[in-house]
Amino acid sequence: MYLVANIDSEICGKTKCTLCTQYCPEANTIQYDKIRNTAFVSVDRCKGCMQCVWVCDTLAKHHAIKMVMIDQLPKEQLRTALDMHYESSNLLKDSKINLPHAELVGK
């Protein structure tokens, strides 16, 4: 098991801060949902470096990001990089393509 970043969308949705998306060293990992105004993590790309946690706690002072064991994540938070949507809120269950490795995440 390993740690991944998890963003509390209730806290994040109240702000318009996008600092974690800018400071994440991995490309296409912290995405931004324009409809719900919240950042979210594509968990299969997260390397668990905790820079977003530092940014959210120290620079933004929102304390919305916590590190969570991947098997403790709620099912609806399990978004992968293949599940990117860019315009609309599109959770894993709505995805039309079959994602073989999405099911492996979390086991």
Partner: peptide
């Protein structure tokens, strides 16, 4: 400032977690 709402040209890579060089390249 728009990052996270478009697909970036950089893809997954094997550099260490939390590397500042990765952030700069991105």
């Amino acid at each position: 400032s728009q990052v996270g709402t478009f697909k970036e040209a950089l893809e997954e890579h094997p550099m260490c977690a939390g590397c500042a060089m990765t952030l700069f390249i991105r």
